[in-house]
Amino acid sequence: MPPPKNSLTDERRIQTKMRMCVRCLGSAATLVLGLILFAHATSAQTQPTATSAPIPHGTVELVAENQWIAPAHDFLLGLRFKLEKGWHIYWVNPGDSGEPPRIDWKLPAGISAKAIEWPTPERLGTSSIVDYGYQDDVMLIVPMHADPNVAQPAPAQFAAQLKVLVCREMCIPGKAQVSLALPIKSQPPPPDHGNSTLFATARQSLPRPAPASWKFKLSEQKDSFTLVGILGRQISNAVFFPLDESRVNNSASQKVVPAATGFAMTLPKSDQLLKPIARLRGVLVLSADRAYTIDVPVSKPAVLKN
C-alpha cells in the first residue's frame, strides 16, 4: 500500500506547529517565536527553499543548481529521488514493464522547461523480463530558461506534480507535489558549492554524444540488427539501451564480438517490431562511466517482413 499522502512540507509543518504554540503561550514566548518566524521569512528571500516529498519507498526533492536565477539565462533544476534499497524507478524507455516518471510543471511566467535529461539506466530483471531504470539515488536534470522579461524581484515559485511508479517485487504508483522558490536577480548567480557538486555528479551519469570520429553501422537481418562500431580500438564489452520501445528485444542477450577497431553487436528484434524502421536510437554503454548517445540509420533499404 502507498504511504499516506502528505502534502504538508516540513516548513509548513513547522509553521503550523508554531501557530498552534502561539495561541497557547504567553506574550514573551510569542515575541520569541515571532522573531524566529521573522528570521525564517527573511532567510527565505535569499535562500532557495526546497521541499522533499514522500513517494512509495522513497522521497523526491526539487533542487536548483544555483542560489538564484537571472533573466535571459538558462539554469538547471533537478528532481532528486532517494529510494529504499531494492526499489527502482524507470528510464524514459522502461523496457518490458513499468513506466517512466511523469512531471507536470507549474512554472512562473517567463520560465520554460526543456525535456528531462535521463541518466544512463541499468538493466533490471531476469532472463525473461528486463526493464531499464534506476535504483538507490538518482537525479533527473531538467534544463530551464528564463526570458529576458521574467518578473522581478519576487521569488520565482516552481512546482511540479509528479507521477512515479516505484517497483521491487511489486509496483506501487505514487504521486508527489514538490516545489521550490528561487529569487530572481539581475546578475547571474555564482556557483552554489553545495548543489554544484550534486549537479556535477548528476551530469556525469548522463550519456554523452558519441565522438564524431566514431562510426556506427546498423544492418538488419530477419530477427535481429547488427550494430558495428568503429572506435579506433578494440571493444570487448558494450551494452545497448534502446531509446524507443518495441524495437529491440529487451530481455535477449546482446552478443558482442570484439574487433581490432571496435566491435559488432547482435541486437535481437522485439516481437512487437512488425514494420521496418529507419533508425535506431539509444545509449551505448562501454563501461561504468562511459555512456554515449547514438542514432544510427539502418544501412540498407528496409525490407518488409512477411
Binding site: D96, S97, I129, D131, C167, M170, S246
Partner: peptide, 15 residues
C-alpha cells in the same frame, strides 16, 4: 504493441 503493466511474477522474477 508494447504490453505495458507489471512484470509477470514468474518464479524467477526478481522485480
Amino acid at each position: 504493441t508494447r504490453p505495458y503493466g507489471c512484470s509477470v511474477k514468474y518464479s524467477d522474477s526478481a522485480h
